[in-house]
Design a protein around this nucleic acid. Structure first.
Lengths: 207, 207
DNA sequence: ATTACTATCATCCGAGTAT
DNA sequence: TATACTCGGATGATAGTAA
């Protein structure tokens, strides 16, 4: 982004006309007065700023340029997580998924609105998805608090709603014990393993 | 900010090594392959990226440059947005405000907690406010999703809570059709036009 | 196919200076 | 004081081509 424009923005020239000399601009940006002058003429010609009575104001067009970049950066840093997508393939679990989903079933229903099928779909992530895996941490999880039942203690869960090949599902991350970071456990209303078949699995996080 | 670096960032080269050819960079940024190549060599010399096995990765130093600018923009917009203030004067609407507020009334009540007076206050913004108008985009809106009723389709709304001369109100931005950007439509619990009188109107956004 | 060198052309910047 | 012109040198980009 144009550094002169950014300076003007910092000085609020998008809100109120700003009085500033080319000498000052040059000093602040380590450039000559002559160059600052030329840059302003340039910005004016491009209709990104306008000058009136010796004061500078950033125009709509100028703001669009800035907001364009700001928007892109926001997308990258703030919203990336919401578009998080993983891919991988189904692997066999150890059968413990079934046990846990039954134990947590009521709690999960409170959060998701449905009782999940008693079993988990285990997806082994491919290399590219594995790198994105850590971005899950930046998402706001649905939290199932730890609880005690029949004298046994059950650890908390983080749940993230997602779609797996168009089916509404949820990723479940047990906070206590869990297998390697390369396998995601998925729960859903119904048994999905057969419906999904043998191909590559796509997991897309949803709000 | 360096546009090549921004491109690499968009392609997640800060998260995982990215395979991309100089030809592709050139094509995406409208520059020659030769120039893309030179720019990469440059970025590498400045230690903003590093290359390994033909893949590119943005370094810590590279990210610092990006986050520096992003931080500055956040300071400007996030803080400003919360203090966003407009001024202007009341203008006559076309009466359609009344119709729409009635249609959307229930949805609005769900979001704001009260049924708005059936009519909108139309404020024509002055020149200075007009420039700030686009900063609304940076704020988090209250969203009324589009819906269908009696076979007719109603577009979504963005709503922003505000105070108009001390009265709690809300700015309503229809996402489909809307008049010029220079008029803001305001809704409130009660009819405000008479209470506000003829002077200048001040609109202040609130959380 | 790829990257990146060299040569040439274009653009940007700073110094001097006119206004 | 101020802005902004011209001009020469520096930096940047493209075309051609080597590796």
């Amino acid at each position: 982004m144009d550094d002169v424009l950014l300076l003007l923005l910092k000085r609020n020239a998008h809100v109120a006309p700003l009085r500033i000399s080319t000498t000052e601009i040059g000093r602040m940006l380590n450039m000559s007065q002559q160059n600052a002058s030329r840059r302003l003429v340039e910005l004016e010609k491009e209709e990104k700023i306008l000058r009136k009575e010796g004061k500078l104001l950033i125009t709509k067009k100028g703001m669009e340029e800035i907001l364009q970049i700001y928007g892109e950066l926001q997308d990258i840093f703030d919203k990336k997580a919401k578009r998080l997508e993983f891919s991988g393939e189904i692997v066999e679990g150890l059968g413990e998924g079934r046990y846990y989903v039954q134990r947590y079933g009521t709690k999960i229903k409170e959060k998701l609105g449905y009782e999940p099928y008693p079993g988990t779909l285990n997806i082994k992530l491919d290399a590219a998805s594995l790198l994105k895996r850590q971005l899950l941490r930046e998402m706001e999880p649905i939290v199932v608090e730890e609880f005690e039942e029949s004298g046994r203690r059950y650890g908390g869960l983080f749940i993230y709603k997602c779609q797996v090949n168009k089916y509404d599902c949820a990723i479940v991350i047990p906070l206590r014990t869990h297998h390697g970071i390369d396998v995601l456990e998925i729960i859903a209303r119904e048994r999905l393993k057969e419906k999904l078949g043998k191909g590559k699995i796509h997991i897309k996080l949803v709000d």
